[in-house]
Design a protein around this nucleic acid. Structure first.
Lengths: 192, 192
DNA sequence: TCGTTTGTCTAGCGGTGCTAGGCTCAAGTC
DNA sequence: GACTTGAGCCTAGCACCGCTAGACAAACGA
């Protein structure tokens, strides 16, 4: 009995190691550098071991995305909890979101740019993703304004943040004015 | 002399064929299916011919992106020209932008999601890209509101549209409420 | 007519994600 | 304690990728 427990523990340890290593490698050298060979070498196992934990590379990306979603939810909640007043809260949320995307570009890609095989916006969406959206909704709902559905407002606000995050990081927007863009967005979108 | 002209003409015909075929293949089966082998087979030349026109696959994606930018600029201008009044114009622009992204997902990816080796937001940005941004600016500038720089406003509005386009298409947002999200965005962001 | 240049192709390199099949060794049985 | 079994892991290899060296044929200019 205890032997089996130990094995299961070791197995889940190794699974966490795979995900953490994939994330680390992606942040260091980009997702293109995360090949199954390199990943296997870093965890000091052979390639096929990866496939005993995950169906394929896509599922590994998905696992990194779920980790990231939980982390982002926590970051957003921490930032908004420290703010007093709805307006300050929305600004703090926007900065926290964009800050997370900037500090963890590979994780952000795993969540929203790459195909991690995850389903979104329906009932079998994984819990961490639903919770990340909930974290946004908690602070943005109060800024939706009269007659506007909080969920819909959160979607629009989120999409705007996502657009800023991706376009800025891809060099599509001049990097200097980032803060002014955030202020303009919050000014206009949020009713507070 | 005329022989050389004919050769140059044939060469640029073939280059257009490559770009058009890449685009077609990408729209039909996604960019993953656009391999140099398949592309070469479709244009009925061998692989190395591609490399006599383009430095590599990335440059082909870039060429598709430039085509797409010109097309999008035209679509946006056509939609806004048909609208009377600033408010109607902004709505028409938003619908035209999102419509283009929805109808040409592969081209949209080439422009904003994939690496086409293009530079953005500086002086050596290719003309079609600058012009596409200019097309947005033409109609959005008047909706910036007092004291807000039209370029900055256009960037924010564009980013929001981009976020809606990508998240919707990737299944990150429920597809049903697309129109309501557009209305909310225009309502809040545009000062008209 | 004879080099020379230009254009294209075949073949292949090092890499990718993924998997079939065999080996090793620990656990369970007599 | 010897034997069988099966889980766990690895080696080797598949088909494909982007890209390129070098051979070859056709068209050109002298």
């Amino acid at each position: 009995m205890s032997v089996q427990e130990r094995k299961e523990r070791e197995r889940s340890d190794r699974e966490r190691l795979i995900v953490a290593t994939a994330r680390e490698l992606a942040e260091q050298q980009g997702w293109d550098a995360v090949t199954t060979r390199r990943l296997a070498e870093r965890i000091e196992y052979s390639q096929p071991v990866l496939y005993s934990h995950f169906r394929g590379k896509r599922e590994i990306i998905g696992a990194v995305a779920l980790d990231g979603a939980a982390e982002m939810a926590a970051a957003v909640r921490a930032a908004t909890a420290a703010a007093d007043g709805p307006r300050t809260r929305v600004t703090a949320l926007a900065r926290a979101y964009l800050g997370f995307a900037e500090r963890n570009p590979a994780v952000y890609d795993a969540m929203f740019q790459l195909d991690g095989g995850l389903t979104f916006a329906n009932e079998d969406t994984p819990e961490p993703l639903k919770d990340a959206f909930a974290a946004l909704l908690e602070s943005l709902g109060e800024a939706a304004g009269d007659g506007v559905h909080p969920g819909l407002f959160t979607e629009v606000f989120w999409a705007s943040l996502h657009g800023l995050a991706t376009l800025t990081r891809a060099g599509r927007l001049p990097p200097g004015d980032a803060e002014r863009r955030v202020e303009l967005l919050v000014d206009r979108l949020a009713v507070v």
